[in-house]
Design a protein around this nucleic acid. Sequence first.
DNA 1: GTCCCGGGCC
DNA 2: GGCCCAGGAC
Length: 212
Amino acid sequence: MGELEKIYQTLYSYYGDLRWWPADTPFEVMVGAVLTQNTTWNNVEKTLKQFDGNISPERILDLSIEEVQEIIRPTGFYRQKSQYLKAVTEWFLSYDCDIDLIKKRPLLDIRFELLQVRGIGNETADSILLYAFEFPTFVVDAYTMRLFRRFPINAGKTYMEVKNYCEEELPQDTELYNHFHALIVHNGKEHCKKKMDCTGCPLEVFCKKILS
DNA sequence: GTCCCGGGCC
DNA sequence: GGCCCAGGAC
């Protein structure tokens, strides 16, 4: 077993199944992925409640930019995010909001298309691909980068380097990537914070104890 | 590199 | 009130 798999097994046996992504529909995952950019999930939840259980492509397109801004204000960056939500909804509509149609297309094609949408960068694209469409694509985020900087492995410096490293080291498995990312984020909030708190961290034995 | 922004915690 | 936290566009 490789180092990465050992790390996964350790986190999984410690925290268990975290059941990401908390959303009712794939479209809600897309909306949440945009809203959580540079924002804690706690704030996103406030906003999702503001939608009163009606988060549909039609609703997003019907609302004016100002109305969307008012609803999503608690997530911050609401001026840009209101535009991003419209843009990603338009993209979804280009597939008639047909999840099965999207799932049948090659992963890299959909990824490329998402990256052309205003407001969708690497992390948001991979989050949508993995958690909304269940493509086996590894999601990297600030927690992942921080954790790997402190690890006795060299996963790379850039987003794509780290992503490719993980996908080469691990089986191409949607469930595995789903759980792994959730576990990394959870452990990042609990222990592997900017200011490290290694006491009680399940990964302590693996980790280089150096300040990043 | 700088700008966009709010909420939580102290 | 000050500081920390969280991606993408340009």
